[in-house]
């Protein structure tokens, strides 16, 4: 039998030029009983590799590992329970939300009140405003010159009432 191919593979194996498949061929070849004498010296290397592949963890490994995992999980849960701290910002968040809600309500309420108040003023508060204006101007005049403010005010108001009276006379005259 020609072992040239195996010899070539073996040469390439020592040089690290064999592929994984070629190394598998070598392992299969050396696993058989009828290995030629000049190659037999290397058979033990490949059978050694095969035996080394069968090495495994001890039989009770899984049970011990399961116990370790259970302990580890328990320890992690405990740590998590103790380590869970609520940040200050999150703790006061409900109060901030309530405060924000109140602020919004106040703002809306204020705006609504101003809107309602404004419309009321438009409806019936023109005359007092005018009167107030006169009174304020009268006070200014009081400061500027020592004139009797009541008479002055009357005097200022008088033309208006006189005008009205004059208008009444005109109306009466027209009716007549």
């Amino acid at each position: 039998m020609d072992y040239k191919y195996i010899e070539q593979l073996l040469d390439r194996y020592w040089e690290c030029h064999t592929s994984e498949e070629e190394e598998q061929i070598l392992r299969s070849f050396f696993a058989q009983k009828d290995v030629p004498a000049h190659l037999a010296q290397y058979a033990s290397l490949f059978t050694f590799v095969k035996e080394a592949q069968e090495e495994h963890v001890s039989a009770d490994f899984d049970k011990r590992f399961a116990d370790i995992l259970a302990e580890d999980a328990l320890r992690h849960d405990t740590v998590r329970t103790h380590a869970r701290t609520i940040p200050f910002r999150r703790r006061i968040a409900p109060f901030l939300q309530a405060a924000a809600a109140v602020a919004v309500l106040i703002t809306i309420g204020g705006a609504a009140e101003r809107a309602i108040g404004g419309s009321q003023q438009e409806e019936g508060t023109t005359a007092p405003v005018v009167a107030n204006t006169y009174i304020r101007s009268e006070r200014v005049a009081e400061v500027v010159s020592p004139v009797d403010s009541k008479n002055e005010a009357t005097a200022i108001v008088q033309p208006d009432s006189m005008a009205r009276a004059q208008m009444g006379v005109d109306v009466q005259m027209k009716e007549n």
Binding site: A52, E55, H56, V57, S58, F61, I68
Partner: peptide, 23 residues
């Protein structure tokens, strides 16, 4: 686990240490 054990055993040369490393 077995592959890891074989590698750990090859480096540490001790079965117990290798199993601890695998875990």
């Amino acid at each position: 686990k077995d592959k890891l054990f074989r590698l750990a055993l090859r480096i540490t040369l001790n079965r117990e240490d290798a199993e601890d490393i695998v875990q």
